[in-house]
Simulated scan of single mutants.
Amino acid sequence: MRRLVRNIKVLNVGQGDCVVFNALYDGDRNAKMTIYIDLGPGNIDITKEAKYNDIDIFLTHHHDDHMGGLRYFIGSQFHRINNIYVPDYLDELTLIAKAILNLKGIRSAKDCIEFINELNDIVNNYNFLVSLSKSSHIQVCHQDDIFYGCMRCLNPPQYLNVYKWIQECDENELKEMFYTLFEKEFADQFNEYIFGNFNVLNEEYQILDENRLFSYENNNDISRRNYVVDFIMRNRELLMAFHHKPTRKRLSKIYRQYTKCCHDTCLVLRYQEEDFSFLLTGDASKKVFKRLINNNELIYSQYLKVPHHGSKNNLTSKILSWINPEVAIISHDNGRFGKAKDSHPNQEILDMLTKNKTKILITNDVIKDGKIIMKKKNHCSDGYIEIK
């Protein structure tokens, strides 16, 4: 097994994630590479942290606060992207985002521009990756993939367990529901994807606008189409309620369910080298960790990148006890979302880590009720946390 001689930095990119490995393959001084796990929201030029010109990039999911920094690499004369690794089901998640954007009434709904813009960003980010696939190798990742001999992918699983909607439900009833929910042009394309020739990306049925990002062994894999239908069927009451009365509150509930799907399929990577281990979690949900624990997967790690910037919705004391980190790193900028009363990192997470006697490192001061309760200066004085 090859070993990486590594230097690791967790950058302060605000409310986002960016972890940088500058690595040499042990025993091969010519094998020099910079590895990025997420790229932040694009508010700072992260390319200056690349010690070597050969670059691999892992995008845990395609939300802006994790891949916005990709634009800094485009057209660069000094860096070469070898590979971009992204999670499985990115095609399907993009299609679901487009489905939400094509709900009847969404254009007339008041005060919904925030969610519409975020969904459009997701679709645009996908199309940006598609454009890069012409010049860089983009690879879909799922559980049990191994990188560099010492980094293992733990999530998402290659096959998600969903109900067999397409096989078990009446086709005409499903089609009728899709035509009820979606604008006709999109409903035509969507039905062709679900029930037709399955190649939704030809000239007649370009439901994702561009060529698919990935090639699967079985492009007609019905489980992937069932995954898309599963989102609609599990949320059909919310979708129908929005159809009858399109309001911000109802769209926000739909968007939250969509975000959960993104977090459920988020890349989780575990790096281990001799007596050093680091769990990189992106915005992975509780559901991800519960699955890993139930399957007796090794998630113990000395270092933990706390999921979702310290949100209480992504970590529990049981999950923390299984990881049992000596050091927890929180990448955040005191973001507060929706009607939440507490900002990231949530106080419950800070208390949980303290009770577990886990050392906390932060990329920014933690502010609660207008007061700094935890200072970054001892952790991140130069704009990054360094792990040696």
Rank of each mutant, 00 (worst) to 15 (best):
I293H: 06
I293V: 13
I293L: 12
N294E: 15
N295C: 12
N296G: 08
N296K: 15
E297A: 15
E297F: 11
E297Q: 15
L298D: 15
L298M: 13
Y300G: 14
Q302F: 13
Q302K: 11
Y303K: 15
Y303A: 12
Y303S: 14
L304K: 08
K305G: 10
K305C: 14
V306M: 08
V306K: 00
V306I: 10
V306A: 04
V306N: 03
P307H: 11
H308R: 11
H309I: 02
H309V: 04
H309P: 02
G310M: 04
K312H: 10
K312V: 06
K312G: 05
N313H: 05
N313C: 05
N314D: 12
N314P: 02
L315K: 04
L315E: 01
L315P: 04
T316S: 09
S317W: 09
S317T: 07
S317G: 04
K318G: 09
I319S: 05
S321Q: 09
S321Y: 07
W322L: 13
I323R: 08
I323V: 15
P325E: 11
E326C: 06
E326S: 12
V327Q: 07
V327W: 14
A328C: 10
A328P: 01
A328E: 02
I329N: 02
I329T: 01
I330R: 01
S331P: 02
H332E: 01
D333V: 00
D333E: 07
D333N: 07
N334F: 05
G335S: 04
G335A: 06
G335C: 03
G335Y: 07
R336G: 00
R336A: 07
R336D: 01
R336N: 03
R336I: 04
R336Y: 08
R336Q: 08
G338E: 03
G338F: 06
G338K: 02
G338A: 04
K339D: 13
A340T: 11
A340L: 12
K341I: 06
K341A: 09
K341Q: 10
D342W: 09
D342T: 09
D342A: 10
D342M: 10
S343T: 05
S343F: 03
H344Y: 14
H344I: 00
P345Y: 05
P345A: 09
P345E: 01
N346R: 08
N346M: 07
N346Y: 12
N346H: 15
Q347F: 12
E348R: 13
E348H: 11
I349F: 11
L350M: 08
D351P: 01
D351Y: 13
D351C: 06
D351V: 01
